[in-house]
């Protein structure tokens, strides 16, 4: 299958390993990945900070960049959620009905990585090998906006060599919340502290999730505390093989 790849601005700029892993994984599964280089950012930061009008060009850009592909994958539950639940709303508030319906249409063909693998490509065992103790944090937007459910866990359970340990209070927010982390830093870090306590309590050496944004937040806290736990995007685990 030919799959368009929306890398997200964060993975593109700061976490290219997650984006590269997505490409490697899909190619290993025999699919063709294309990266339309007109893409930039989904505009979620603008929308969630109260700048819907400023986000309009980004909504339009996303729709016009990915309109021509049957399937687009995004390695982020949060960006997938924004595209699905916010793009058409912004388009109809500040753009026009035509853009709104195009945005909705493209959004319906946009999948978060675990959704693409399980719902579209119908694969649970991606042939990965990852000999580490791993705990999975289901990020809020994956869980409650994009509603990926247990798909990431189903994928992880099939990974060979993995020691998957359950994260206590997994569904609690890590405190990132985009600009929330900047506008309410004390509350955000108080939430992070509890998340980190829970992660450390698992004894895992890797914390994984489907969003680089939350991982950046959690990783920033783990690094500050020298907790000895790494953050790794779900795609990187699924892309790992015995030979890599």
């Amino acid at each position: 299958m030919r799959i368009a790849f929306f890398a997200t601005c964060l993975a593109d700029t700061l976490f290219p390993e997650a984006a590269k892993a997505t490409v490697r994984l899909l190619e290993r599964l025999g699919h063709e990945v294309v990266f339309p280089n007109q893409q930039t950012c989904c505009g979620q930061m603008h929308i969630n900070t109260g700048y819907q009008k400023e986000a309009l060009p980004l909504v339009r850009r996303y729709a016009s960049t990915f309109d021509r592909y049957d399937v687009t994958v995004v390695p982020s539950g949060s960006c997938a959620g924004s595209i699905r639940h916010q793009h058409a709303m912004v388009a109809s508030a500040y753009g026009d009905a035509g853009l709104a319906s195009r945005a909705a249409d493209v959004a319906a063909r946009t999948y978060e990585l675990s959704e693409l693998l399980i719902d579209v490509l119908k694969v649970e065992d991606v042939g990965a090998y990852y000999p580490h103790r791993v705990t999975y944090h289901p990020t809020c937007h994956s869980l409650r906006m994009t509603r990926v459910g247990d798909k990431p866990l189903r994928l992880l359970r099939q990974v060979r060599g993995i020691d998957l340990v359950e994260l206590p209070a997994a569904e609690q927010c890590c405190g990132f919340g985009g600009t929330f982390a900047l506008k309410n830093p004390e509350t955000s870090t108080a939430m992070l502290a509890d998340k980190i306590t829970d992660i450390v309590s698992t004894g895992a050496d890797v914390c994984t999730a489907g969003d680089t944004s939350c991982l950046m937040h959690i990783g920033g806290g783990l690094s500050r505390l020298r907790a000895g736990v790494r953050t790794v995007h779900l795609a990187e685990i699924l892309a790992s093989t015995e030979s890599s």
């Binding site: 890398a7 700029t13 700061l14 390993e17 900047l182 830093p185 502290a193 690094s223 500050r224």
Partner: peptide, 25 residues
């Protein structure tokens, strides 16, 4: 500020040598 709010309790990520976009190209 507001970026200093981030680093009050969290480290910044390490900047990669190459963006994904450049890697792809």
């Amino acid at each position: 500020p507001p970026l200093s709010g981030w680093t009050a309790g969290r480290d910044l990520p390490e900047f990669p040598k190459q963006t994904f976009r450049d890697w792809w190209a």
